[in-house]
């Protein structure tokens, strides 16, 4: 719910800065590890957007995979099923590249 509320306020602030009157679409990027439940977020977004210029806007969620880099051999791979070990050298010393982000990418306005 706090996430939905923040999305609405970020989108409304960005739209007002550009002098837009209505937001038609909000594109959000959410990393897989954020554990966002799309149906739930869309529901709360609709609720929070009511009576704002984002009311009725379409919320698009792009879920990014958990992408990591092995610090030993430099191999980049997607973590599936939470197996955090490098498929090449089996090292568990890895760095997260994507999959934890949560941001409003862009909005479409009228």
């Amino acid at each position: 719910m706090a996430i939905a509320r923040n999305i609405v306020s970020i989108a409304v602030a960005a739209a007002e800065k550009e002098g837009a009157r209505k937001i038609t679409r909000v594109n959000v990027v959410a990393g897989e590890l954020r554990g966002i439940v799309p149906e739930q977020l869309v529901f709360y977004f609709g609720l929070m957007a009511e009576n704002t210029i984002a009311g009725g806007a379409y919320l698009d969620l792009e879920i990014t995979p958990l992408m990591v880099k092995c610090k030993q051999c430099g191999d980049k791979f997607v973590v599936k099923d939470y197996r955090y070990a490098c498929p090449i050298c089996q090292s568990e010393d890895i760095e997260t590249l994507s999959g934890t982000e949560l941001r409003v990418k862009d909005i479409e306005v009228e």
């Binding site: 996430i3 989108a11 941001r103």
Partner: peptide
């Protein structure tokens, strides 16, 4: 019109 935002939701 599209507006670029790129704002972290939990910032």
């Amino acid at each position: 019109m599209k507006i670029n935002v790129m704002t972290d939701i939990l910032e």
